[in-house]
Every structure is written in C-alpha cells, then in structure tokens.
Design a protein around this nucleic acid. Structure first.
Lengths: 230, 230
DNA sequence: TCAAAAGTGTTCTCCCTACACCCATGG
DNA sequence: CCATGGGTGTAGGGAGAACACTTTTGA
C-alpha cells in the first residue's frame, strides 16, 4: 500500500490547471494536444496540464506546464473558467482551472515531446479525454469574446505581418468575412499598427506592406479611454 | 489533537467559493458583505463563501452559500475568476472560485443573519478581509464587461420598472451619463422590452410607463445572430 | 492580354448624438 | 405661471458596407 503523508480533517479535492494552446498557421486556428499515455482515457488526446504545486499560483502552474510542453516562456495566457463537476475525473474529485494560451506556432519547439504532442486544426479535433471537449468550446467562446475588444490576436502572428495575414486571423477566429478595403481602413484608423519600411512578396503577384503591433501606442490610447472594437 | 481522517499522497489545497452579491437601490450599486466572527480578519467584512463539498460543483456550492446568506434561490450567478495566490489565506493554502450574483434587494431577507450581513454602497466599502478587495474589483470589472452585451441588468431591477430606473442602472454600473431620449430609443429598438399597460408615479410630477424584460423575445433574437450592445 | 493580389477612393445608408419641443403636474 | 420630469421629433456627423478603380506581376 502506498504511503499517504498528507492528512486533513475534511476531504480536499485535487486541483489541476489545463492549458488550451492556440496557434495560427496563416489560414486556420490550431490547438496543441497531447496523447495520454496512461489510464484513464489512455490513447485519447487532451490538453497539457497537471497538478498545481502548493507554492505556486494557478497562473504560475499553467505557465510551467506550457513551458514543459512547448518550451515557450512568457506567452500570453488567460484564465477563463474553473471546471468542477464532481465526476469529471473518474478516479477522484479533481477541479481544474483552465487557461488558454496564444502562441506563435513558428516559435514552438514542436518536438520536445514530439511523440505525444501534435497540432490539430479546429475542425479536425477528435473526441477528447475527460471533459476537454467542453473546455475547448469554452476556450474558443472566450477567445472570440476577447478579440472583439483586446488586441490579443497579435500574439498569434509573427512580429511582422501583412494586412492580409491579420485579416485572415480575424476571419478565422470570428468565422466571418470582411471586405478587404474596409478591414484595412478600420485597422489603420485605430493607430495601433506601425507600418514598417519593409515589404514582402506573400504571393508571386505583388509585394505587400509589413506592419507590427505598436503596444506602447495601444496602452496610451487605452488609458485615454479609447475602446478598441472589432 | 484533532482527528484527521482524509489522507493523500500529495498535498491538496482547500477550495472555497466566494460570492460577490450585487444589488441596486434605484441610484447606486450595492454589495452584500458579512462580518467575520473568527480569526483571521475577525471583525473585518468579507464576501459570503465557504468550503466546497465533495459532491457538489462550484456553482452548486456558490448557490448554496447564496441561499444561506440571503434566502434567495435561483438567482443569477456567474463564475468570473479563481484566485490562487499561495498566501492569500494566512492559515493554509486556499484556492477560491469567485462568483458574482445579481439579486433584487427587495427580495433579499436582509435579516436572516442580520447581525452579520449588511449592504454597502460601492464607494463606502471598507477594507476587506483576505484578498477580497481584489476580488471585488475583478467582479466589478467583469460585471461592466458583461452588461455591454448581455441583458443581465434586469436581474437587479424589480419585475416592472420605468425607463428611468433602467437608465439609472446602466449609468451606475458603467459610470457614464446617457441622453434620456437616446437611451430610451435605443432600448426600445432592441425589442426586448414589453411595455405594460400600467403606469406609476415615480415622482409627484408625472406618471411614467412601466416595462418588463421579455426574455423569450431576447432568446429568439439572440438565436438569429442578434447582438445586443450597449 | 488576362487573372490575381494589393492599395486606394467613393457613395450610400444607418445609427448615434445633440438638442429642441410638447405635455402634464404641483407648488 | 413656472419649474420639473416624462415622452417624442429632428438635423448633423461619423462609421461601416458595398463596390469601383488602379497597379503590378506571372502565366
């Protein structure tokens, strides 16, 4: 029998963090999943996550898991919901604090744990372990809400990007189409983009301007009561 | 020495729910606080809350606490954040899942536990126990976000209300002023209000129309992709 | 020469804003 | 008769939707 060293007067639940990691490949949202090697749900895909340590906050725990899975540090993460159904884990009572992360696919060492981690397009995500299907829907819903008012989309793009890339991102996340000209005008009017001197040839047809997100400028506008809306 | 019956191989945090209960008194937002009777923070005010049971979800736990404190069942509650700083409770590691509730002050039995529970105007809230100052700010921020797109304000008003009451509510929550005429027009154009045949005399000056929130109508519009925005 | 991609300009419409006006009541 | 509060109408401006025009390249 295994040793149980930690005793309490009342029963305590286990607490984990799970991290829904989003990436963008210039046309579609993707999500990073890991294949479970043990029961329950052995062989099924799930979000990276794990038990929280007693001396770290949930956010620190989520960032730790993120680093372990992708090698990334300092990524954008946001807590979006705690899932607490008493039977969501068949073994014992586990409450999970769920985060989503926005990362640049290019920067992810997709191979640290390559045998077990894999990017999935959103419409190719299989049935997941535990209640992770539910968690994914909630993460997506929150991301869609957030991007209406916060410039978080840039976390998914390279440092320098074209207007078309940015438009593709918004269209993919919100599942809508925008008029090319109107999208560009609206974005530029916000005054949160820096137009770079460089250009690229995204297709062999014509060169395109490159932009970068000007975070300092955004913070300044936000302080003045400016409300970004898309 | 007290008996400790529940043992685990690894340390487990305690998990509580806390509930920020908002009410509205026709001019200002209020919040229901309880005075702590025991250490730590004895004598300081805090949100109602308590440990989660092993066979209930966090939402069920929050609703249970709400009923114990106000006698209300079926109130509108929404989970908004989990607070997990390792030292937020000086005694032991406690993670709290925080909810806010919107209730009608008129319906609250303010006296179930009257010696300990009291309504506070937002600008008269004293320094609170634990990290509850932080929790209050987060609850307010979330409420303000939410009310821009969801018709949750009605949860704070009586069944029947005047346009001025509704405007006061929005102005109090968002801390802005609206033009009387424009507010009314915008609200009515949403088609989510039922104008009742009844009227009232809110002041001795003139009678005013009464309205009620038409939830069925709102659900129908929402399904059609309608997006409420204020 | 044509299709595709990128940049830019134009028009129309709708909604928000601001403000004005009317009416009813109590003092 | 006037101040107050509630209901309604109207002119102007700004932003978004739709679409057109231009340029540059490779096929």
């Amino acid at each position: 029998m295994e040793e149980k060293k930690y005793s309490y007067k009342y029963p305590h639940p286990s607490v984990t963090t799970d991290c829904v990691i989003f990436g963008f490949d210039d046309s579609q949202l993707q999500v990073l999943l890991v294949e479970r090697g043990i029961e329950p749900f052995k062989g099924r895909w799930a979000f990276p996550g794990g038990f929280i340590k007693m001396d770290e906050s949930c956010e620190e725990g989520a960032l730790r898991e993120l680093k372990e899975e992708t090698g990334l540090t300092g990524a954008y993460i946001e807590q979006f919901h705690a899932f607490s159904d008493p039977h969501r884990d068949p073994r014992e009572r586990v409450i999970t604090i769920a985060y989503y992360a926005l990362v640049r696919i290019q920067e992810v060492k997709a191979g640290d744990d390559a045998a077990r981690a894999k990017w999935f397009h959103l419409n190719e995500v299989p049935s997941l372990a535990f209640d992770h299907d539910l968690i994914l829907r909630a993460a997506l819903a929150r991301l869609r809400e957030r991007i209406h008012f916060e410039p978080i989309g840039f976390e998914l793009l390279p440092e320098k990007f074209t207007m078309k890339q940015l438009q593709n991102l918004y269209e993919a996340i919100l599942d809508v189409r925008f008029d090319r000209a109107n999208f560009s005008k609206k974005m530029l009017h916000f005054n949160i983009l820096t137009q770079l001197d460089e250009t690229v040839w995204p297709t062999p047809k014509r060169e395109a301007n490159l932009y970068s997100f000007n975070e300092a400028c955004y913070r300044e506008l936000k302080q003045k009561g400016f409300r970004l809306e898309f």
